[in-house]
Amino acid sequence: MAKIAIDPLTRIEGHLRIEAQIEGGKVVDAWSSSTMWRGIELIVKNRDPREVWALLSRI
């Protein structure tokens, strides 16, 4: 029984970590984690609603 981790996962937009549990050459379980967070949901709170598109389009 082995566990592998691929981090960073390249050729994607953003930061991603993939972990997989392997038994007998087969993946039996897997986990993905997004390893970066900016809190844009909190940043747009209480802002002028008209300008929120400009922040959220840069996600």
């Binding site: 981790a5 691929i6 981090d7 960073p8 996962l9 390249t10 050729r11 994607i12 937009e13 930061h15």
Partner: peptide, 8 residues
């Protein structure tokens, strides 16, 4: 990261 071939 976005354009390179190797990962991990």
């Amino acid at each position: 990261e976005t354009i390179m071939a190797p990962s991990g």
